[in-house]
Structure formats: structure tokens, C-alpha cells
């Protein structure tokens, strides 16, 4: 326990030092300190936001986008991070325009975002327990009215929320979004065929669909699909 507390104390010292370095425009040093804190992958959006800012100042577009995305992943309501991400992405040369999702996919994504996983799981459990409670009461003859419809609806809701919980938990645990970290990363149509069909600018956010050895099948922001080497990207 004391060990954990000591580590936490050291991290907050590093954090303050890094923030001071940033204010003194010493971005190189600040980046090193922030990365030291980030090495244990703490789940604090502020850290990744500041890291993004450092890399933006150092003009490392790929790293900046990656860290802003990480911050938003942890805290989807982080408006400053979204603004900074948008600004950073506007500096990507030959940026691939995003095709955007259809409204119901957007709804689905909104309902099942990673941060809701706990909420859905709890809600599902609540409905399960209440419905079970109602059934038990009925069995014991404590309630006289016919409650089977209520308990049935409760169980249906429980299942629905369980589905939400499953999807968002999947989204939370699975890192299937990645950022292209190399400039003009080649993308090919086939795994075996190394002929590149396109070159993706650094800082492009892609979705990983499949994995084969060293290659990943990705979906580009405009909906095109292709294979890319693992070393070119970093998962969020």
C-alpha cells in the first residue's frame, strides 16, 4: 500500500514539473516527463490531453492525434481535446475526408460508447434483480395481482441492456482504432500483394477490422479498406 502511495506521489511531482516545462516552452523535456507518467497507462484524460499539446507544439502530428484520441476515449465529453484534435487534424497534409456515419449508426455508437459500459451493466442487473424479486414474491404468494407481464417486460429490458453493456464493454476493452504514425504510410489492397494503392498521411485515424501476422486490415475515414503494416500504426 505504501508503495502505491509513493508511486502516486512521484507521478504528481513529475506532472507538475512537466506542466512547468511546457509553460516555459521546453516541449522536448516536457514530452519526456509526460511519457514517463504515461508509461504505466494511467486512465486520466488530462495526461493524454497535455501530451497531445506537447506533440502539437513539436509538430508531431501523428503523436498529437493519438494522444488526443486517447484522452477523448477516456473522457468522451472532453470538448477541449475534441477542439485540439480537430485543429491538429486540419494540419494533416492531404487529409482524407471523413465520410461520416448514417444517423442510426451514430445513435448506436452513442448508446454503446465505452464509457457507458458500467452504466448499462448496472442497469441490466437492476432490471434482472427487480424482475426476479417480483417473480419470487408472486411465488411466495405475497402479492395477489397477476404480475407475470411486469416481470416479463423487466426481463426483456434486462436482456436489451445486457446487449448494450456487452457492446460498450467490447468497445472499451478492444482497441480497434489506430492512428497512422508514419508519414505517407503505404496501404495495399491485398495482404500478399505488396502493391500499395494509396499513401496515408500521418495522423489519420483508422479502424482495424482484421489482423494477419504483421498486417492489419483497416478502414480509412472515407470508407475505403486496405492492408497496412503493423509498424505504421499505433492503437489508441
Amino acid at each position: 500500500m505504501t508503495n502505491v502511495a509513493f508511486a502516486g506521489n512521484r507521478k504528481s511531482n513529475l506532472w507538475q514539473e512537466a506542466n512547468n516545462l511546457f509553460k516555459q516552452n521546453n516541449y522536448d523535456q516536457a514530452a519526456i516527463l509526460y511519457e514517463q507518467i504515461a508509461s504505466s497507462k494511467p486512465n486520466d484524460a488530462s495526461l493524454y490531453f497535455n501530451l497531445g499539446n506537447v506533440y502539437y507544439k513539436l509538430n508531431k502530428i501523428g503523436e498529437a492525434v493519438l494522444n488526443y484520441q486517447r484522452a477523448i476515449r477516456i473522457q468522451p465529453s472532453f470538448q477541449e481535446a475534441k477542439d485540439n484534435l480537430e485543429l491538429t487534424m486540419s494540419r494533416i497534409p492531404n487529409r482524407i475526408p471523413s465520410s461520416g456515419d448514417i444517423f442510426f449508426i451514430l445513435w448506436w455508437k452513442g448508446i454503446t460508447k465505452a464509457t457507458f459500459s458500467g452504466f448499462w451493466a448496472a442497469l441490466s442487473l437492476l432490471f434482472f434483480l427487480s424482475s426476479l424479486g417480483i417473480v419470487t414474491m408472486q411465488r411466495l404468494g405475497k402479492i395477489n395481482f397477476n404480475s407475470s407481464k411486469i416481470s416479463l417486460t423487466g426481463f426483456l429490458f434486462c436482456c436489451l441492456f445486457l446487449l448494450f453493456a456487452f457492446t460498450s464493454a467490447h468497445r472499451k476493452s478492444e482497441h480497434n482504432t489506430a492512428v497512422v504514425m508514419k508519414h505517407d504510410a503505404p496501404v495495399s489492397l491485398d495482404v500478399s500483394n505488396g502493391k500499395s494503392i494509396s499513401y496515408i498521411p500521418e495522423g489519420t485515424t483508422v479502424i482495424i477490422e482484421d489482423e494477419q501476422k504483421d498486417n492489419l486490415q483497416i478502414v480509412l475515414p472515407d470508407g475505403r479498406k486496405g492492408w497496412i503494416n503493423k509498424v505504421q500504426v499505433e492503437r489508441i
Binding site: A7, G8, K11, S40, K41, P42, N43, D44, I74, A114, S117, G118, A121, A122, A165, S168, A169, K172, S173
Partner: peptide
């Protein structure tokens, strides 16, 4: 400061 927790 702790890493991302496992989903509930």
C-alpha cells in the same frame, strides 16, 4: 493514476 479498469 491507475490503469484503465476492466469493464464491469
Amino acid at each position: 493514476l491507475n490503469p484503465e479498469s476492466k469493464p464491469l
